[in-house]
Amino acid sequence: MSSDKLLSVENLAVEFDTYGGTVQAVRDVSFAVDAGETLAVVGESGCGKSVTVQSVMGLIPMPPGRITSGTAKLRGRNILGNPIVGGEDIRGAEIGMIFQDPMTSLNPTMNIGDQIAETLEVHRGFTAKQAFNRAVELLEMVRIPEAAKRAKQYPFEFSGGMLQRAMIATAIACEPAVLIADEPTTALDVTIQAQILDLMNDLKRDTNMAIILITHDLGVVARMADEVAVMYAGQIVEKGAVDDVFYRSAHPYTLGLRAAMPVNDREAEHRLTPIDGSPPDLFHPPKGCGYCARCPAAMKVCNDVVPPEFAMSDTTDHFSRCFLQHPESSAVRLDGLYRKEVSA
């Protein structure tokens, strides 16, 4: 169904061997993105967001990591575990990636312009001079002031927001078909965040690239996403168009996240509703639904059986992995699950 999309990941499972045992970091994850589309992946810390995209990029350290199943197809071709296609490394050329912490992925001993130029020399066969000139243009494109001068500076001479923009310039240098952005703005102020998000949207519009955006900020999701995948304990528990996931949330975890956030409404005096408890131990993932232990609507079956994807309608691809959506399930009203208490 999704294999004709630009990038499709199917049945991905990833484990890590650690002293404490085997961590099942990603358990059967499938998603796809098309050109010109932004997929946001949300979920709390440790749920497997980074590991998912690192697998696609061939960045999982093995050992301790191990991809135990799955495919990742770019234009129909499996790239999982073999990022070299037709003699070319698709990383950087076809798929660009922005990391959460720019300092870890930029080389502190090389000036910014040369770092961007390097990918162009490697992937596009530019001469050193052509590549550096293009690097300056790219820095202008991501709105670094005085780009020609800045290109000769080193990472430590850049502010956090400028580094993040320089990393975007590196990631898009070869005009990749897919841009993967792992928490690109988490460490930044809201004002700089707005700049970076606008920039990503402009680039998407101008080059029709696909974006996979990892974040745990639902505000960023609302601003950027066409499609949303909500991850919990290594699985996608709900996925669909952004409006479906926000306005017709179909998984208790999605509702829980929304109820935990303040609403910007001066009239509504509510109390935040936290999600009690903490995510399950991925050394021993629960037999049934990962969210079961924290779910206010858990049923007996949830404990023992992993819920399949229940389609929410015939016309969309909105699904929820929750037995409440089973056609025979007694109708529990999801919208009352985390009612925001009205305070006196």
């Binding site: 004002t191 707005a194 998000l197 639902l218 960023v220 996403a225 929304r258 956030m261």
Partner: peptide, 26 residues
């Protein structure tokens, strides 16, 4: 004003109507 208008809200509908308000400079 720039701070509050940069603050993304968890509401896709209002985000679609938000004008881009990027502040310039550092």
């Amino acid at each position: 004003q720039i701070l509050t208008s940069s603050n993304p809200e968890p509401d896709p509908e209002s985000e679609r109507h938000r004008a881009s308000t990027s502040i310039t400079g550092e």
